[in-house]
Amino acid sequence: MVEKPRVATASLCGCFGCHMSLLDIDERILQLVDLVTFDRTPLTDIKTLGDCDLGLIEGGVANAENVEVLREFRRCCKTLVAVGACAVNGGIPAMRNQFGLAECLRESYCEGIGVHNPGIPNDPEIPLLLNQVHPIHEVVAIDYVLPGCPPSADAIWTFLTELLEGRPIAFPYTQIHFD
């Protein structure tokens, strides 16, 4: 028996909306499970990443841990896909690039309304934030992009089925949108 393609997914600096949209393929998820094996993904709760054929990345790169996860995905996945607006161009989180990191952190942890115990967290367990949020192609090479906030379930389905069947990926007009 031929081994099924292994798929991993991760959410970096995003809202998990793209993962929710993946679940929105509804009953087609049963077909998908027939087609692929899931490796590390929030859907399986597998925490370690093995060699994969396909990696789907939601979210932009906002902190040191995002960088680490993204690089690991790039190392382990033959094909890496930026899924959703945040992975593609930083999305909503990148709107913080309008401000300095100090401004953001002081507003959140020191000077904002309702802050108790003001102080910027410095526990070594907490990943440090990057000066700016970046789309993932600014950190690693990517092979495909799937825009949308989130990409619709149909767009995700079109993408996965055509890719897995080795066809050139062509979306109907209504499936491509940046929002």
């Binding site: 709107m95 940046f178 929002d179």
Partner: peptide, 15 residues
């Protein structure tokens, strides 16, 4: 697109 800040999900003009 890279020159400005075009955050389509947060723009009333989107669509």
């Amino acid at each position: 697109f890279v020159e400005g800040n075009h955050v389509c999900p947060a723009c009333e003009k989107s669509g």
